[in-house]
């Protein structure tokens, strides 16, 4: 049987640009505790389960999300999937989606970590310095709505700015996603995703003695100090995903 990874990527590719599709795949595999590089035949059902937990971060609309999961699930059957009409156009990713004023943030789904994540703030494509400002403002806005203190709003906005800045400086194109997490505690999550060259040695850049040539080498370390959690998934050739969270106390 052929490697299903390509099919899965192909399906995700109907919803995301290729770089983001790969990042979603990676993030899903990691979440499902599966092989880091590829989906095996025997793992498809586990992969689908992990995808159901991951996807709310990436596709806000429950209908579109269900449709995407359905398509991936269909890959399990030996029957080729029914021919589909041309893939739906992606929504414009240049303008952020503003959270509804009612405070109703949409559907909530559980994740492996006991937290649920909802993408409420939106997705900001990072291609210019103005986009960084937008990501920063949106992070502050979501943090404020969640009830973070002014100081924490500032830390969160700064974190968003650092991650967006790195995308612009070192890759030139990528996305910052801002969402709310629910669980034992509420909080905010900022995910920065790109498909650039990757960070060759993540341990090194997080080391307290590190100084970079390009900047001060304080961005990622500093962001970790400002937030409660920070995870970096980066490998040469596949790009970088940085996810950081701060919880309300």
């Amino acid at each position: 049987m052929p490697d299903p990874t390509d099919d899965v990527l192909g399906t995700l590719g109907e919803y995301f640009p290729p770089a983001i599709a790969r990042a979603v795949l990676r993030s899903t595999l990691r979440r499902g505790g599966l092989d880091e590089e590829r989906v095996r035949d025997s793992e498809i059902s586990e992969f689908v389960a992990a995808l159901e937990r991951t996807l709310p971060m990436y596709i806000v609309d429950p209908g579109r999300r269900g449709e995407c999961i359905g398509k991936v699930r269909r890959l399990m059957t030996t029957e080729p999937p029914p021919a589909l009409p041309s893939p739906r156009p992606r929504p414009s990713r240049d303008t952020p989606r503003v959270p509804p004023a009612s405070g109703g943030f949409g559907r909530v789904e559980p994740t492996a970590s006991g937290f649920t994540e909802r993408l409420v703030g939106g997705i900001i494509r990072i291609r210019t310095a103005r986009d960084i400002v937008q990501a920063c403002d949106l992070a502050r806005e979501v943090a404020r709505k969640l009830g973070f203190s002014l100081l924490d709003q500032t830390k969160i906005a700064t974190a968003a700015s650092e991650l967006a800045r790195n995308i612009l400086l070192y890759v030139g194109d990528g996305e910052v996603r801002i969402g709310v997490i629910e669980g034992p505690k509420r909080g905010i999550q900022i995910a920065a995703v790109d498909s650039g060259a990757g960070i060759p040695d993540v341990g090194l850049v997080m080391n307290s003695g590190y100084r970079s040539r390009t900047g001060m080498g304080m961005g990622l370390k500093g962001t970790k100090r400002l937030m409660d959690e920070l995870e970096i998934d980066s490998r040469p050739g596949t790009g970088t995903t940085v996810v950081t969270r701060k919880l309300l106390s």
């Binding site: 002014l150 100081l151 830390k155 700064t158 304080m218 370390k221 500093g222 400002l226």
Partner: peptide, 13 residues
């Protein structure tokens, strides 16, 4: 601003 100053210090800047 105080919040900005504290943030810079916490980052180590």
């Amino acid at each position: 601003r105080p919040a900005v100053a504290i943030t810079l210090i916490e980052m180590g800047l």
